[in-house]
């Protein structure tokens, strides 16, 4: 069995007295696509925020690729190979689409504090940036202002910038939300493609997508893990049915 690349133990996040994430254990195995599902407000995005260091944990421990990352800053976690995309697409609106991706690629330079050099030396990243845009069907928008792209394209652009860092583990927060059926098909294919040689943890509301794509599923409700396993196991679980259909199942 493959080694877990990400291990979360008892991670908790309280907002005042309210625990948005409450003692969650999560293992993402190397090379797998792992889904995190659950009703609205279950704590999925908050979980992501804890894993990527966007928010500090109130309690618990996170290990990634053999080392603790619990106390690391977001940028340090990203540099170790754990990179996310956001639920509300997070791009650089005033940059061209190409420059959005190039900015992510630029991170590989050993230092970007060289304020005396010309940015022309970043042009060597253009080809790779263009490839990534092509992979996401964005080639024709390469020189458009990112803020002017249609909604679905912005999401695709964000995934392209995430991939630009060549992460070991990618966290995708609802990558298909707001997309039409055709785009969903394309993004699903893309996720399958990018998952070769890396691991993916994704929040996804579209259950057919989860069924078709994911090796394992973790179900979250009110901040707690209520079920874990492959899709068939989880789908048959009473607690899961109850969480999705409401509490009238007494």
């Amino acid at each position: 069995m493959a080694e877990a690349i990400l291990q979360a133990r008892g991670i908790t996040r309280a907002f005042g007295a309210f625990k948005a994430v409450d003692g969650v254990d999560l293992d993402v195995r190397e090379g797998e696509i792992h889904a995190l599902i659950g009703p609205n407000g279950a704590g999925k995005t908050t979980c992501f925020n804890l894993l990527t260091g966007d928010m500090p944990v109130t309690a618990g421990e996170i290990r990634f690729d053999g080392a603790s990352i619990t106390k690391l800053a977001t940028h340090e976690i990203a540099r170790r190979g754990l990179v996310r995309s956001y639920q509300i697409s997070s791009i650089f609106p005033a940059f061209t689409a190409l420059n959005n991706v190039r900015f992510a690629l630029q991170q590989q330079r050993s230092s970007n504090f060289d304020f005396w050099r010309s940015e022309l030396r970043l042009e060597r990243f253009n080809d790779r940036a263009m490839e990534l845009l092509e992979d996401l069907g964005l080639a024709q928008w390469a020189h458009a202002r990112a803020g002017d792209l249609p909604y679905g394209r912005k999401r695709a652009l964000e995934i392209a910038t995430t991939l630009a860092l060549d992460p070991k583990l990618i966290l995708l927060d609802e990558p298909t939300s707001g997309m039409g059926r055709e785009d969903i098909g394309r993004v699903t294919e893309l996720i399958r493609k990018i998952a070769k040689g890396r691991s993916v943890l994704m929040v996804e509301h579209n259950l057919p997508v989860v069924q078709g794509l994911c090796d394992r599923v973790t179900v979250l409700a009110r901040g707690r893990v209520i079920a874990q396993g492959n899709y068939a196991e989880v789908a048959g679980n009473d607690l899961v049915v109850e969480a999705y259909l409401g509490t009238a199942h007494a």
Binding site: T74, A78, V83, S90, I91, P93, T161
Partner: peptide, 10 residues
């Protein structure tokens, strides 16, 4: 443009 995203890109 987006400090949060700059951080999460490392």
């Amino acid at each position: 443009e987006n400090p949060v995203r700059a951080k999460s890109l490392g």
